[in-house]
Design a protein around this nucleic acid. Sequence first.
RNA 1: GCUCCGGUGGUGUAGUCCGGCCAAUCAUAUUGCCCUCUCACGGCAAUGACCAGGGUUCAAAUCCCUGCCGGAGCACCA
Length: 514
Amino acid sequence: MEAEAEEDDQVLPDLPNADEYDQIRMRLAPNPNGPWHLGSARMPAVIGTYKKIYDGWMCCRFDDTDPETKRPDLDAYDEIIDAIGYLGFEPDEVLKASDRVETYYDHARELIEQGGAYTCSCPAEHFRGLKADAEPCDHRDKDVETVREEFEAMVDGEYSDGEMVLRVKTDIEHKNPALRDFVAFRMVDTPHPREEAADYRAWPMLDFQSGIDDHLTGVTHIIRGIDLQDSAKRQRFVYDYFGWEYPEVVHWGHVQIDAYDVAMSTSTIKAKVDSGELTGWDDPRAPTLASVKRRGIRGHAIVDAMVDLGVSTSNVDLAMSSIYANNRDLVDDDTDRRFLVRDGVASDATDRERLPAGAAEAFDLASDVPDAGHPPLHPNHEDRGDRDVPASEAVLLESEDVPADGERIWLKGLGCLRREGDGLAWVGTDIDLVREEGVPVVHWVGAGDDEHVRVRLRTMDGDVVGYAEPGYADYDADDLVQFERVGFARFDAAPGTDAAEADPGEYLAFYAHP
RNA sequence: GCUCCGGUGGUGUAGUCCGGCCAAUCAUAUUGCCCUCUCACGGCAAUGACCAGGGUUCAAAUCCCUGCCGGAGCACCA
């Protein structure tokens, strides 16, 4: 091992004032309202990489304080932890904001005593108008005693949705309207889906909850999206009341990923999964981590791509091709080669440009043709041995590879043959025919029923069916192969093990990339 | 409307703070060639960018101004 390779190319810029802290402490703050899409990977990829660079600390804090609009999905908590693991990281600690509501209450009480917050019963619309005009509402000057009582009433659930909020007193005339007296707590009638938190009705807003938690957990660096740019400014008001120092902040822009027709948003994907438009979160057409994982793309390939994006505040387009390039880099050397003769599409595939389906055609073999071919498992590693590709009577070729009558063709691992009508005559194994005479080299499988296995290759554009060499049956789920001249694919299931997703007798594979 | 933040090749990125070594780095992409019993891997080459206009300066991608374009916030969402 070259040891240095991963230490490494110092891809990310230094964190601000990093040397002023004994330990760099950061947090991932996902909302567990659904499984992660590809964009979500940026957070653990970048923060996790910084953790490695600085030997820092990283926790995963689920900001699940909205039981209604962004209602937590109980499965998502574990799914997100799994996704972080898939990307190659592990949080040092896992917290759920919904376990910490009492803590937020305590800090609200303290803020109230300092005169830093007030209960407000203005209808949202009304307050919005006042805020736009930089006008305070009547509730702003309430005495602490009243605020205290009304807040306790909120905590006790004596108000309903929309009847009362607790606002942080900032600067109602601040030139930036986004910073004027923001809401710290509001009432939510809908119980939280987590049993442990189901009794709370007064819930903190992100700016309050997140601000308190960042301080309490000793976070030194907050790294998050530009949508939260003003959040830091709002939270500083709370920090000032408490005499706390605000962490360093880094903001990045939004990521878009090409190659997908489905918008990268949890709610959009969820709607399409629910309606059946997508078969699930791991449908290859879904821009999710579950999807690329099932296709055999390593988490590290995504991390590298995300880290390469850096942390600029401008929006960026991430090309899937760069994730593919990273993945090829990771897997090519270890991946066995196999043949797959495609035989058309099996579903309502649309854009065939990305992966032509072909069609299999059978040709009889002359009697003097060897009854098996032995191409290497990996061209760069002869020591790994050869494959055994049998063909006793006839072979299957992809339609695009079929030579004109009288022309020669080289069946990889077998030798050169000449087409004579519906048959192939033996020419020989002089490799100069390929090197000097340009005979095309193609992949193939035996035509006999026991000389191939049926494979369904699931791609972003639909299913392609075909015939793979018999050795393909020896793999297990998660194994990767490269179907020569087709691309990399992940072995998903053998026949019978996942009958719902493939026809009887078919192996199910997922296409990764060329 | 108000307030913030950005704009380097198809994509991402380096350089911008501390102007000159930038006729602009690296990766990816595309194309061509070489290697090869794969259209993979590897090697070589080509393509291709400082949003626009002013200003400061001997010198500007870098500093200043204006404009244009893009994004974000102004939620009882996160």
